[in-house]
Amino acid sequence: MIAPQLTDALNGWLAQCAALNDAADHTLTAYRADVQGFLAFMQNHNGGAVGLGPIARITTGDMRAWMAHERGRGVGARSLARSLSAVKTFYRWLSEREGFEPTAVLTIRSPKFTKKLPRPLEETAARAMIDRVECQALEPWVAARDTAVVTVLYGLGLRISEALSLTAAQSPLPDVLRITGKGGKMRIVPVLPAARDAVAAYVRLCPHDLADGGPLFRGVRGGALNPRAIQKVMELSRLQLGLPATATPHAMRHSFATHLLTAGGDLRCIQELLGHASLSTTQAYTSVDAARLMEVYDAAHPRA
């Protein structure tokens, strides 16, 4: 348990994040857990002292002790870096509100970690995946549904949650879709004819009443389609195709971005299509493209 005064401060900061930064609910939940853990450690580290006073006097040694404690309980470098970012943001807000010096916390360096690069499929593999998912279902309408979902993931670069949030009112798919992504950010995505046709084929066969406002993609009993159903059908398909375990629904989104980049797409435009808040996130795809280029070079270059 942390002191009520600190709990009030944390609640005030989270309320501001929600109101001014439009942070998503799951983001706020992660922030709360990260900062609560930090404050609880500092409270115990200072002999159980409570209130804002001890928190305002945190030293670099205290910060190193917290980070060592987190690593000692198995927290990875990536997760610790995320927690530290939340703590710094909260601490900066608190210092401005209470008028103390935050340098000891804000100057602590984040732990280094190797960024995981996206694992896209080759273009031929992405097309093979779309063709193969149709073969997994016994009922034609389910086969058409699965094909439509995977086509939308690849053709529009959507997250699985975004694809499954489409409503029946959006069918037939228009020329462009307004997609609400992470953090409530809105973006406009062009709809390819292949995606429109795949969705239309599914709608024609679907036995359930696709009433306006209800979900577009339905489970076998008529409720909203569970993402696990698409994950499972792609697992079966990748095994049959001999593709790696990274051939997931999210890999179709990565493939969309990488294939656009390879074809000469502008990085800023791809950022907009994916709904990335920062260009640095989209720039990971340039590393993927460069890595693939080096693989081709190593395989093809004549050696003495």
Rank of each mutant, 00 (worst) to 15 (best):
I2C: 04
A3H: 14
A3G: 10
P4L: 04
Q5L: 05
L10Y: 02
N11M: 08
G12E: 08
G12H: 08
W13K: 02
C17A: 13
L20Q: 15
L20K: 13
L20C: 05
D22C: 09
D22S: 12
A24M: 02
D25E: 15
R32W: 01
Q36T: 13
L39Q: 07
M42H: 12
Q43W: 04
Q43H: 06
N46S: 13
G48Y: 06
V50Q: 15
A56R: 02
I58W: 04
T59F: 11
T59V: 00
T60R: 15
M63W: 05
M63E: 04
A65D: 08
H69C: 05
R71P: 00
R71Q: 14
R73N: 02
G74N: 10
R78Q: 09
S83K: 15
L84S: 07
A86T: 05
V87N: 01
T89V: 04
F90W: 09
Y91K: 04
G99M: 06
G99T: 04
F100Y: 05
P102H: 07
A104N: 06
S110Q: 08
P111V: 11
K112R: 14
K115A: 12
A128D: 15
I130Y: 07
D131Q: 15
R132L: 08
L138P: 00
P140Q: 13
W141K: 11
A143R: 09
A144Q: 10
R145L: 00
T147C: 12
A148K: 03
V149Y: 10
V149W: 09
V150Q: 06
V152Y: 02
L156G: 09
R159V: 03
R159Q: 07
R159H: 08
I160W: 09
E162S: 04
L166C: 03
L166A: 04
L173Y: 02
V176H: 14
R178D: 11
K182P: 03
K182C: 06
G183H: 07
G183Q: 10
G184E: 11
G184P: 06
R187G: 06
P190F: 07
D197G: 00
A200P: 02
A201C: 05
V203Q: 12
L205K: 14
L205Q: 15
C206R: 05
H208A: 09
D209N: 11
L210H: 07
G214P: 00
G219E: 06
V220G: 02
G222S: 11
G223L: 01
G223N: 10
G223Y: 04
R228P: 00
Q231D: 14
V233Q: 02
M234E: 08
L236T: 13
S237W: 03
P244M: 10
T246A: 14
A251T: 07
A251W: 03
A251R: 06
R253C: 07
H254M: 10
S255P: 04
F256T: 03
H259Y: 06
L267V: 11
R268Q: 07
R268P: 01
I270M: 14
Q271G: 07
E272P: 00
H276A: 10
A277Y: 05
A277W: 07
L279K: 10
T286F: 11
S287A: 15
D289C: 13
A290T: 01
R292N: 12
R292W: 03
A299M: 08
A300W: 03
P302I: 01
